[in-house]
């Protein structure tokens, strides 16, 4: 992989353009192997009550070394501005950085973001010095508003979380990529490698996924597939694809034919 093709967000530099979640794996050993196979250097985690009744249980951070990976806490499961802000503050208190993947969800069935709540929560957290990476809808206007209030990147969804539907609205994503001048991380809805490659070919700066890897029949193999898909998509984007045309253009010369 090209060592110079780094992604920088608010002074944090990332090697990998594939970011992965750490939920839904069979166990921590599988989580660790899948993350290694994916080549990701950013992993998302959730903030929850520590199990104090059974302390024999292992800790995720025994398997994922915070010195090796950027730990990106999220506010998953939060449906109100107050909850999201509370969880973000707890994440900062438990962790080591000001980074937070901000989620304010609007509905349990679709897990679509409540974008009005998202903007409100982002404003509060940015004022408190957080680096807010907002999980948002594929709405170019909301993406722009998030950037205007100080988000150093935006994370529009490809499709509902865990749906595996792939990119439902490529044109909106393209508009976001054209109109918003901060890194775009396509987050949620990826189903398989081609979805990830497509997101990168459109010009996404990174892709974040969890279920597509953890829920695959062979998560570690899928993690590796995603690594190459993101890399290939990135290279293709930088290489510049040919325009689509309705009719053929011969690739072999006519000259020299009998």
């Amino acid at each position: 992989m090209d060592a110079n093709d780094r992604l920088t967000i608010a002074g944090h530099e990332f090697r990998s353009r594939l970011w992965v979640g750490t939920g839904k794996y069979k166990d921590f050993a599988e989580t660790k192997k899948a993350i290694e196979a994916s080549g990701a250097d950013v992993v998302t985690v959730a903030v929850r009550r520590v199990n104090i009744t059974d302390r024999s249980k292992e800790n995720l951070l025994d398997y994922i070394d915070p010195k090796k990976y950027t730990i990106l806490p999220n506010t998953a499961g939060c449906y109100t501005v107050e909850d999201a802000v509370r969880y973000a503050r707890l994440a900062r208190a438990a962790g080591i950085s000001d980074l937070v993947k901000l989620e304010v969800l609007g509905d349990e069935r679709t897990l679509f973001p409540d974008t009005a709540g998202l903007i409100e929560a982002a404003k509060i957290l940015i004022k408190e010095g957080f680096i807010v990476l907002p999980y948002t809808n594929d709405d170019p206007i909301v993406a722009k508003k998030l950037v205007d209030i100080g988000c150093p990147a935006v994370m529009p969804l490809a499709a509902p979380i865990g749906s595996g539907l792939g990119i439902r609205n490529p044109y909106n994503l393209k508009i976001i990529m054209e109109t918003v001048k901060v890194p775009i991380i396509v987050d949620a809805g990826v189903g398989t490698a081609s979805d990830a490659a497509l997101a990168m070919e459109y010009g996404a700066d990174a892709v974040l996924m969890n279920t597509a890897i953890a829920g695959a029949q062979h998560p570690i193999a899928m993690a590796e597939a995603m690594k190459y898909a993101v890399y290939a998509g990135r290279l293709a984007y930088k290489a510049g694809r040919i325009p689509r045309k309705l009719y053929a253009t011969a690739s072999s010369p006519i000259e020299g034919m009998l």
């Binding site: 939920g23 985690v45 959730a46 903030v47 999220n74 998953a76 994440a91 438990a94 953890a214």
Partner: peptide, 13 residues
């Protein structure tokens, strides 16, 4: 309340 990091992606309970 004592909280820590657990495995999580987009939405986790």
């Amino acid at each position: 309340e004592i909280l820590g990091f657990i495995g999580g992606g987009c939405e986790t309970k």
